[in-house]
Design a protein around this nucleic acid. Structure first.
Lengths: 253, 253
DNA sequence: ACCAATTTGTCCGTATGTATG
DNA sequence: TCATACATACGGACAAATTGG
């Protein structure tokens, strides 16, 4: 052992593939590569970074998975503003793996959906309202198809969030929506008047948004989320059981 | 061209590395590999899947990035219940890339923080309260250090969410917290009484939680988030500008 | 504390399928 | 149609780090 001080700290050198990923990520986040712009071929990156092909490819996988880059039909690399879908379904998966309960889901959804519709009442554009109207019409036409109803209801809530013009809120509620609404199908099948009450609530929410009637909109949203809870319990399950992984299928791709 | 029908559909064959990733992911999601359990060495996987090591490694990168597996200090692979941290910072990044405004952040944070404290008042355990007390004590001791104050305040809110016992809510507020609270440092520097009001609010929230006084707790939380908005505007910025990428550094690792 | 075996990180070269012009 | 460029995948190799005796 030497009795001198270590002159240098240990260099914390990241693996090469990580540095490749970081370097490209930086360019995208800092806006020097805009979404849609090409990244270059693998050989190009090999040349620029001075590392091996395999190394570049590992870095690319990281970024692909992170949703920062993607490949088009011809497999050329380009930057892409990450679609939340991928992130949201990852989040949903994380929730399932943590074995969160339906109660946690219910409580959080209540908060997020109420916030969404409150802001939607204030800010919904004509376009938003048209989209919601179309959704309600489709739902009324699908009255006898539980799967379709559930899907449309899920879309209804996503449209509400969109109408809030608040992208943070939109992103925050997406993972819960992904897990929350698939159960509506089960409920529609088991509870006779379930679909009818759902449609009525959606119709009333749409009406309230048109009239900019915040109070009524919130009331009907609360009622619908509560209906979900009651319907859920009526299927014989308890709120304190963990969200099953089977609800993931609908969420992943 | 033959005039016969195609007998077979085109096989949707995923790349090998993707199949490797999917196969391992399935095992984890289905619970056949529990969090903490080892996955095996790369050579092991090479043998089992019958593919090249480079291919295995690409698959591993995907899962690592997805937070499903990780390497411990000795770089051995093991499954891990995905820590939200990684997902949350990814979400934050997505928000920045979408150039969301501080207003969107503010509004959503208000909703999520209020919900957190409301549930925290109902359910905080002795342990939660002890953690919060310690945080408040540390904050009082750091009164002259804006960076430390901001960090501790961020932790305070995370602890509140933890005390809500609602993991869905916890996960939902994390990305916004990551972006929201770093700005408190700037505010503490620019607004003289900022730190003091922040500490007072935290102290009062803690007190309200101890007393199970929901009304007071919510009041002080609302006041603190509002203070944030006022302080933010006092720094000369407007709520309608986009959240800057500079706020990301604090968020990533 | 040393050594041998294992494992990871990285690299090289090559073959094959596919998309584009 | 053909040629070219490129992505995917493979086999093999070596140095550094880690493990376990």
């Amino acid at each position: 052992m030497s009795d001198t001080h270590d002159r240098f700290e240990r260099l914390n050198v990241a693996p090469a593939y990580q540095m490749v990923a970081d370097a490209i990520e930086r360019e995208i986040i800092q806006g020097r590569i805009r979404p849609g712009e090409p990244i270059g071929t693998e050989s190009e990156l090999v040349r620029q970074f001075g590392v091996n092909r395999s190394t570049v490819r590992e870095g690319i996988r990281v970024l692909e998975q992170g949703g920062l880059i993607s490949r088009d039909s011809s497999r050329r690399l380009f930057a892409c503003g990450p679609h939340h879908n991928r992130l949201a379904s990852r989040l949903s998966r994380a929730l399932v793996l943590q074995e969160v309960t339906f109660r946690e889901l219910y409580e959080t959804s209540m908060v997020l959906e109420l916030a969404s519709i409150e802001q939607a009442v204030e800010r919904a554009t004509e376009k938003n309202i048209a989209e919601l109207s179309e959704n309600v019409a489709k739902t009324e036409a699908a009255i006898d198809d539980p799967a379709r109803i559930a899907e449309l209801n899920s879309e209804f809530h996503a449209l509400i969030a969109k109408a809030s013009q608040n992208r943070v809120l939109q992103l925050a509620r997406e993972p819960t929506g992904l897990l929350f609404f698939p159960t509506t199908e089960v409920i529609c099948r088991k509870v006779a008047e379930g679909a009818l009450r759902m449609i009525e609530a959606n119709r009333m929410m749409l009406k309230a948004i048109k009239a900019r009637d915040k109070k009524s909109a919130i009331l009907w949203m609360r009622r619908q989320v509560d209906d979900w809870r009651k319907g859920f319990e009526r299927t014989g399950k308890t709120l304190d059981e963990a969200v099953d992984k089977s609800y993931l299928r609908a969420a992943t791709r």
